[in-house]
Design a protein around this nucleic acid. Sequence first.
DNA 1: AGTATCATGTAAGAGGTTACATGATTTT
DNA 2: AAAATCATGTAACCTCTTACATGATACT
Lengths: 192, 192
Amino acid sequence: MTDDRPTTLEYALLGLISLAPMSGYDVHKVFDTTPLAHFSSSLGAIYPALRRLERRGLLTARLDRAIEARPRRMFSLTPAGEAALEAWVRQPVTREELIGTGEPILRFALAGGRLSTAEVVAYLEEWGRALDGYLEELRGHQAAMEAQPQVPPHGMMALEHGIWGFECQRRWIDHALAQVRARRPVRRKRRR
Amino acid sequence: MTDDRPTTLEYALLGLISLAPMSGYDVHKVFDTTPLAHFSSSLGAIYPALRRLERRGLLTARLDRAIEARPRRMFSLTPAGEAALEAWVRQPVTREELIGTGEPILRFALAGGRLSTAEVVAYLEEWGRALDGYLEELRGHQAAMEAQPQVPPHGMMALEHGIWGFECQRRWIDHALAQVRARRPVRRKRRR
DNA sequence: AGTATCATGTAAGAGGTTACATGATTTT
DNA sequence: AAAATCATGTAACCTCTTACATGATACT
């Protein structure tokens, strides 16, 4: 229904809250004390994002008055929220996502229990193909730069830095594929 | 004098234009067709950023009327711009910069000709130390997660993905150090 | 008594994305 | 003749950052 897709931060919020209902403050603590910090973590971003997700019907809040003087808004996913998350997780990795955004790995992290083993394998394979394509691009740039005169040597080295990073990601994917394939096939959490 | 530091995009613009004076359109083309795309590349970001840099006195524009009907604003660095760039390149890598932003590698790329070999070595070593510290942090998280029950396996794997990435960066630094150390010592472009 | 933590938010400002607007020139 | 490229920009919108505001409770 809503036209505008959630942002990466919003998906990270949905993913975290899908694991266990929690308050905005709780979310902030988790983001602040784990590598999830990558996706912002500032209260001034989190509270408005939660409001947006609530307004769009992906989250619901329920007041927890366990401590009377300090009410907490406990968020949990609505069916629409769970559906949006699952639909997102199913999207194949695109070339654009490889750069900058941590979306591919966030989707993988949230795929546990949502996708079957076969689907996870397919996702990782697709990601690997996207990476291979981008690596080819980068090596093309490298060759073009080497052919040119007067390219600053630090520029070449910076490009090499990028290539190493993506090659490393590529190796992790094979490693992850081996791990996932070693699992019992078709283990899939049932929806209730 | 100006209190607000340039953004990463602005430093990328300064760095590119420092190599050769060019128009906003030229910049856009370079950003659009090279891995520099990482730093945005959209015209709606580039033109305003160039204006800001001009207003702050870091860039000057000079109208190129070579093609009468299509005047181009050719930007080049002012002495203040070159000074700002050089000062930035000298900043050591911080923990925060390791995450998300491509600042450490951009600074390295722009350090060529601005820093002496010894200074570049020091920069890389500092970067390596920052990475080592962050890697320790991440391995601490990993150990803490392994100790906990009910951690989703994909979460563990995602953390591993991050660790692999930073380890790879670490290895690149050693590789770069070897390359830089192999150069003639103290070769430094003179300012004119 | 003072600081840190819990817990919620809002406000101002900056920057980026997308789309629009213009108009000449080159390519197909 | 139509489309893409050259070349500049602006406008609307959204999100994030930083800082502020509030007030209770727990710690030192």
